[in-house]
């Protein structure tokens, strides 16, 4: 599924990286704990989170995650958006809560990311 379809499904607004909106996404990881994103995620995946700060972007950057959906209508500040822009990371924002956002995407065929327990 590409990000444009995800944007429609989640009734989301694009805050950064509009030019990359046709990027394909195969899996999703949803989490407010960046420590766990860093420890568990292996795939190139879409990150859904309610944690809106520059460290979410930094974490995505380190993990080669190139798209993030901020849930619960949480608006990132300018610093966070600039960092996303700098790193070519697409930022979407949806009013849906995390649970509902995941449910919508799952119902439409997007699977969860594979995580690694080593």
């Amino acid at each position: 599924m590409n990000l444009r379809e995800i944007q429609k499904l989640l009734d989301a607004e694009v805050l950064s990286g509009e030019e990359y909106i046709d990027r394909e996404v195969k899996t999703v990881f949803a989490c407010d704990l960046m420590s766990d994103v860093l420890a568990f995620v292996e795939d190139k995946t879409l990150l859904l989170t309610g944690l809106v700060n520059p460290h979410t972007i930094r974490t995505a950057e380190m993990m080669d995650i190139n798209a993030i959906v901020f849930v619960r209508g949480k608006m990132p500040d300018k610093e966070t958006l600039n960092l996303a822009e700098e790193n070519g990371i697409v930022i979407l924002i949806t009013k849906y809560i995390l649970y509902t956002s995941c449910g919508i995407l799952y119902k439409n065929g997007l699977a969860g990311a594979e995580i690694v327990h080593k």
């Binding site: 407010d32 960046m34 860093l38 944690l51």
Partner: peptide
């Protein structure tokens, strides 16, 4: 800020 889960050193 999303850190301090005690995963840093093991990771």
């Amino acid at each position: 800020m999303g850190f301090g889960a005690g995963m840093g050193l093991p990771n």
